[in-house]
Every structure is written in structure tokens, then in C-alpha cells.
Design a protein around this nucleic acid. Structure first.
Lengths: 340, 340
DNA sequence: TTGTAGGCGTTATCAA
DNA sequence: TTGATAACGCCTACAA
């Protein structure tokens, strides 16, 4: 591996000049620049980003921490973040905590977050770790991708999942449903609680009871929805509608119901959350709450990079609207335009 | 941020001793060790991995390059690789080339793959880039996750997708299908060609014609399958079965057919590939070819790490079997055991 | 416009 | 068992 010194020697100049050409900073005559450039080519020289990082104290890497990368929602979020980051010259490093707060703490505590120029945390602002976040923020900028519309301690892109789930439940209630079940993510996760609270508010307002039997929690996978459906269908009095806090749940629910001859939406309605690609491709297409993850991801990166470069100093929160999308898992006859 | 010098000063020892404790190498008396350890704790000292990398020329990072991270298949592959790598103390860095060979070349050429201790390339051994791979391999070990069972230039975990697709087509032919269509990935991708060739072999052997109208290619997304279904269903003579080179294709196909009242599997049979979680949760459950990605991922990492550590010197290829899984998109009455 | 030299935070060699 | 010190490859005053 050639190093800068080799280039300098071959070009017959000093390392300083080579460095200047590399970073096109400082002044070099055209003649030396050419000599250097051809030496670089000849040697296949690539500057060591490690040595560079050591010297400049920047790595051009950002940490992206998500609850669970197997969940399509976060896979998509990460992908958008990746695109946005790469466009700005940053490499995103993915961390998945697999819905395990201990693992998160572990990352936060011992991982050398120092090696990153910044970090983005997606739906991870649990009370337990907020103080860790503040500590980290003393070292490097962080941005939250979150549900918390009133947070002021961090820069954030947020969408109000409480309100989103409220709208979902409200929709079912207005259609006349009374026995409505809820399938949520891990019980101890903050975002799950937010969604549940939105659901609960709609139920309370309508004077409807929230039965323990109608509640189910688990990782945001098909399986959880499937299991929930098994439980629900064994009840003496089955629910007639389910608010699912994720599209994966919804797909699992529908799968089991359909297998058992329970028709969706005729016998039971199901509504999801997130609007992952699966939601529109599933049959029946899944009604859901859509979150503008592409824009949110892009802005999350912008916010972070602005802080990293010092262009922006104060914390800022950008709020994004979510939207109820009605499809065939709640309404047999809705006609859906597929864009594809 | 405290550095090693601060620790040494606080403990009243030399940096050399601190370093020894950090790497528990060399010999230090218990007394100094204790002093150092408490100094570390007091200062919240974390060694700089950058400086460390600079000195040791190891980063403990491996590059993982996949064709398209939005494809669930590769999201799952990456996740397994991630687990295996982390268990061995390596951080995987994800690169998605988005089915674009130019982007791959770009990564290969200019990216400082030098910063990685090794790299894993997933289904990316196109002829065009093999020579680049060899060049890279002169710098760092690489492992291929591949279809190429007879490769000898690299260490690899492989599964024979040619044979897998052959089995899929064969199955439909044995059920009496004659008008069989094929939906494949990007035309210029090598793995797509392998799959097509497997399909074509079965067709040829059975004396069946491969019509141009029955061929469709695109990125491995739902949309491609959906579009293919549109095309197929407009034909004067529709196919009665489709071999889809990915489960996403299959889901898109089934979606469109079902919407149009074309029954799967009664009117048309569809078979996928990869056995992503979606395949079993879809309704009807999708017949597919299953690849043991968990074991393959683990072994890919093992192979690579063994080379990195020097435990293994020669190239080695491990071959994994794939398996035809019959579900309801080809057979109405098959009863499927869901493990969930 | 060019070059010299110091330092970023480690590890590793070699004396003491 | 300890500690000085020289790298690792790069950037950047500062001097020439």
C-alpha cells in the first residue's frame, strides 16, 4: 500500500504539497499538481481514512440505531437514511438492538460512540436512556427519529403516533365497531405505549371497554399477529375489529383469520400501522397509518449533518403528519390505485 | 475525552503499562494493574479505536456488500451476518449497490476497502468484477456468498440456484403445466441468469417452448411481479404457471391475479424463490425454494474471520443444499404447519 | 509556492 | 516488572 510519502517521493515534492492536492486546499502550482496527480494514479494511492480521522478527528461515519432491523419498517428507514447520508459524504453504521433495552444501554455505554461524527436514534427515546443521550450529546451531535412532539433537548424529526393510532381506532368506531382489540409491540417500549394510549383515548371517548382479553403484545413480526389471532379467535366473544400497531401484526392476523375461514374485512376488520410495502401488496390490502419516512429520514440526516458541520447550533424539531390510509382490510369495496 | 496519557498520569505509571492492562498482554504487577484500573474507571476512559487501528492495522470492521438491501432476502442475510460477526468481535458495514454494477465497481475501486479487515460479497460475483475481487484479495481476505459451486479463487459459501430453479420448474412440469412463464431479476445479473438457465433446462428437457412473451425481468420487488402479471394477463394465451425468481415477485404476481379474479393456484400456479418470511405469511402461502441463509451467513463469517486471523490459509468452498417447499400457491390442498 | 516538523492516541520494542 | 520512545499515515502551522 502506497502512502503519502511514496507519492511525494515519486512526484519529487513534499508531503505537504501532496496533502494540499488531496484536499484541494492551500496553493500549488499547476505543474506540481500535475506531477502529484500522475504519481497518485501510478501508485494507485488511496489516502488512509484512518490516519486522516486520527488527525482531523472526524470519521464521516454516523451511527444509526434502530429497534429491530428485521422489521421492514426500520429496514426502509435505514435505507432512506443511508441514501441521504451517502449523498452528504457520510457512511451510516447500523445498530439494531433487537427490541432489547439492555442491548441499547450496552451500546450507549461502552460502544465508542466517539468514533462517530454523530448518531441517529430511531424510536428509542425511552425514559430510561434519555440521560444517556444527554451524556452522549456532550460529545457528538445526535438526532432523534421519534414520536415525541414536545421534546426540546434534542434535534428531532417526529410524527405523532399517538394521534395516528387515535385516528385508526376512531375510524373503526365510526364504522360502528364496538369490540375492538389491540395488538402492540413490546410492552416496555415507549412507542408502543404511545400507540396504545392513542387507541385507548378513542375507546374511552366512545365509551367502549378495553378488555384484557383483547390486548396482545410482542415483537413486530408476523408471528405475533398470528398468535394474537389464535388467542382472539378462541375467545367466547371474538373481537370484530383489531387495531394493530404495525403492518406485520396485521398481516399475521389476517393470515390466521383467513386460514380459519374468518373473513377479513367481513367478519373482522384489521388496521395496521407504518404503511410498509407489504401493506399494499397483501391480499386484502391492509388499511394502515402512513408515515412519511423518506422525508423524515432525509431531514433527520440534514439536521444531524448541520450540527456536525456547525451550520446549525440550536436544537430543532420538525413535525411530520401521518395519514390514515383505508384499504381492503377494513373496507371490502374500496378501490385502490396501485402506483405500480 | 481522556486519553491513555491521562490514565497513566493519574495512576502514576507509564503509558506502556496502561496499554498492557488494556490488552492484557505483557506482565504487570497486581498493584499497578489495580491502580490503572481504578484510574480508567475514574476517568471514564475508552481507548480510541481509531488510534488503535492506526497502530495495529486492524479495524475489526468487515464490509458486507449486497445487491439490494430493500429486498427482504438480503435484509435477512445481512442480519444473520451481523449476528455472527458481532459474536466474533467484528462490526459489519453494509453496502447496498441497488442492483447497479456501476455502483459496485465504484465501491470496489475507490472505496478504501483497505479500512476493512475483510469483506463479504453476496451474490455479486459477476464476470465483470471478478478481476477486481482478485485485486482486493491481495490486500484483504474476502468471502463470497454465491451460486458458483465450482469457484476456486475465493473462499465461499454457495448454494446451487441453477439446480433450485430447475427443481421448481420441474415440479410444475410434472404437475402437467405446459405454459410456464418466468419472472427474473435484473437481466445483466449473473445470479438471475443462473436461475433462468435452471428454468430453461427443465423446459428444454420437457420439450416445452420458452416464449418471449412469457419472460419478464426487473428488480426484486413486489412491483415487478405485479407488472409481470399485468403483461401476462393481457396475452391472448395466458401462462398457466409462473416460475418467479424471488418471493417478492411471486407476491406481486399473486396480488394482481387475485385482484383480477384469476385464482391462484386454480387458474394459475406461482412459485417463488428464497423463502423469505413473507412467503409463508402470504395468503395463499407461497411455494418456494428455501436457502439455508442462517447457516450460510454464519459460515461465511467464519470463513472470513479464519482468514483474517490466519487460522485458515487456503480457499475453501462450502456447499449448501436448497430445498423446494410446496405451499398453497401451487397446491390448493397442501396443509402447512406454521411453526409460529 | 514549497517544505519541515510536530502531533493525533495507540502499540510494541528494547533497555533498564 | 517497568518505562522511554519510535512508529502508524496524515494534516497543518510555520518557515523558507
Amino acid at each position: 500500500m502506497a502512502v503519502i510519502k511514496d507519492v511525494a517521493r515519486l512526484a519529487g515534492v513534499s508531503v505537504a504539497s501532496v496533502s494540499k492536492v488531496l484536499n484541494n486546499a492551500g496553493s500549488v502550482s499547476n505543474k506540481t499538481r500535475e506531477k502529484i496527480e500522475s504519481a497518485i494514479k501510478e501508485l494507485d494511492y488511496i489516502p488512509s481514512t484512518i490516519a486522516r480521522s486520527m488527525r482531523t478527528r472526524k470519521t464521516n461515519m454516523i451511527a444509526v440505531v434502530v429497534p429491530d432491523i428485521i422489521d421492514d419498517f426500520f429496514a426502509n428507514v435505514f435505507n432512506y437514511i443511508k441514501d441521504a447520508a451517502q449523498n452528504l459524504g457520510y457512511t451510516p453504521i447500523l445498530y439494531s438492538i433487537e427490541d432489547n433495552i439492555e442491548m441499547l444501554k450496552n451500546y450507549l455505554g461502552k460502544i465508542s460512540l466517539v468514533n462517530f461524527d454523530g448518531a441517529i436514534f430511531c424510536f428509542l427515546d425511552e425514559d430510561e436512556v434519555i440521560s444517556n443521550f444527554e451524556k452522549i450529546q456532550m460529545q457528538i451531535p445526535i438526532t432523534l427519529f421519534s414520536w415525541n412532539i414536545s421534546n426540546v433537548k434534542f434535534s428531532a424529526v417526529v410524527t405523532d403516533v399517538f394521534e395516528g393510532e387515535y385516528k385508526a381506532a376512531r375510524y373503526l368506531i365510526e364504522k360502528g365497531e364496538k369490540r375492538i382489540a389491540f395488538v402492540g409491540g413490546p410492552e416496555n417500549s415507549r412507542i408502543s405505549k404511545q400507540k396504545f394510549d392513542g387507541f385507548a383515548k378513542a375507546m374511552r371517548e366512545a365509551g367502549l371497554e378495553i378488555k384484557d382479553d383483547y390486548l396482545f403484545n410482542g415483537h413486530c413480526r408476523y408471528q405475533t399477529g398470528y398468535q394474537a389471532a389464535i388467542r382472539f379467535s378462541r375467545l367466547a366473544e371474538m373481537p370484530t375489529a383489531v387495531v394493530a400497531a404495525g403492518d406485520n401484526f396485521a398481516a399475521g392476523l389476517i393470515k390466521y383469520f383467513t386460514r380459519k375461514g374468518i373473513k377479513v374485512p367481513d367478519d373482522i376488520k384489521v388496521i395496521g400501522f407504518d404503511n410498509i410495502p407489504l401493506a399494499s401488496i397483501y391480499e386484502p390490502a391492509i388499511s394502515t397509518v402512513s408515515i412519511p419516512i423518506e422525508q423524515m429520514s432525509r431531514e433527520a440526516v440534514n439536521l444531524l449533518v448541520n450540527k456536525i458541520t456547525g451550520r446549525e447550533k440550536a436544537n430543532r424539531t420538525i413535525i411530520f403528519k401521518n395519514e390514515l390510509l383505508i384499504r381492503n382490510s377494513t373496507d371490502r369495496d374500496i378501490l385502490i390505485d396501485f402506483e405500480f
